[in-house]
């Protein structure tokens, strides 16, 4: 009888938690799995990569030499960037512009891809609100934009990739052409392109993204770089999102729509950078 009471109470409490404490339940689930998922990543970084390094000394030496050359080159670039930054700050002060939002780069390992369902294009990172991550923070890798943070728990954050069908990013074409001006549009995620003749394709392969509401007068060349416009307030201006494949007029003839190949290989994401507006460690 006591056992029955226990199970009835458990059932009632579980239902109660799901109905009245949904967001807390989501955070609790992620936090419960976090130590184990993070431990696997830590093991890989600490032991597995070192073990691999032992067997590839020669390759490491040549890679080190290459990286040292890169560091020297980047130091020169950083010096120029500092001078430019000082100039920008001075000109901003002269023009009475509002100062840019202070933010920090925060490296974060990927601990889960897609969660327990493959419906959405999401990844989970091992950095959360305790590290200064906030909802809406952009997530990037050296190749370009990966996505943005849509949910945060103390140690983890959920990232919606730009390839998710629900993703929208304000973008523009880089250097569209002589006398064309700025060509802006809204980048829609892939995964749900209506088609009268759907073809068999692996779900794992990402559909091209769609850049919509481009001006109809200008036909952009294939392989044009698509960058963030900075108008959506989420992503800073000028980050690479992808490369244009082809463009065509929309059925209503009012604007142009283009297919865009993402710049980032979403399946290969292991470590990303969060542009944390709420603090974080200095780069």
């Amino acid at each position: 009888m006591k056992q029955t009471k226990l199970w009835v109470w458990l059932l009632v409490l579980s239902f109660g938690a799901l109905v009245f404490w949904r967001s807390g339940f989501c955070d609790f689930s992620r936090e419960a799995l976090y130590p184990y998922e993070n431990a696997l990543g830590w093991f890989e970084r600490t032991f597995w990569l070192r073990a691999q390094a032992v067997f590839s000394r020669a390759r490491q030496a040549s890679r080190n030499a290459m990286l040292e050359r890169d560091v020297a080159r980047l130091q020169l670039v950083a010096g120029e960037a500092e001078a430019l930054e000082a100039e920008v700050v001075r000109l901003r002060a002269l023009l009475d512009f509002s100062p840019p939002v202070p933010c920090r780069w925060l490296a974060a390992p990927v601990i889960s891809r897609g969660g327990t369902s493959e419906v959405w294009q999401r990844v989970r990172l091992a950095k959360g609100s305790l590290h200064g991550v906030r909802k809406g923070d952009p997530v990037v890798v050296p190749e370009g934009v990966a996505g943005r943070v849509i949910d945060v728990s103390p140690h983890t954050s959920e990232v919606m990739l730009v390839t998710d069908p629900n993703s929208r990013v304000s973008c523009e074409l880089e250097v569209p052409g002589e006398g064309v001006g700025v060509v802006r549009g809204i980048l829609y995620g892939g995964g749900s392109i209506p088609s009268a003749d759907p073809k068999l394709s692996l779900l794992y392969v990402v559909d091209p993204l769609r850049l919509r509401y481009l001006t109809r007068e200008f036909e952009p060349a294939p392989r044009t770089r698509v960058v963030t416009s900075g108008l959506g307030q989420t992503f800073p201006k000028g980050l690479t999102v992808g490369y244009l494949l082809e463009s065509r007029l929309e059925p209503n003839g009012l604007s142009r729509e283009a297919s865009v190949m993402p710049a980032v290989d979403m399946a290969g994401l292991d470590e990303v950078f969060i542009l944390a507006t709420g603090g974080g460690h200095a780069p």
Partner: peptide
């Protein structure tokens, strides 16, 4: 109880509606 927990966790970690 098992099915409520299993369903709840699948929805919570998979970004699915409650």
């Amino acid at each position: 109880t098992a099915l409520v927990w299993a369903g709840g966790v699948t929805d919570a970690l998979g970004g699915l509606p409650a």
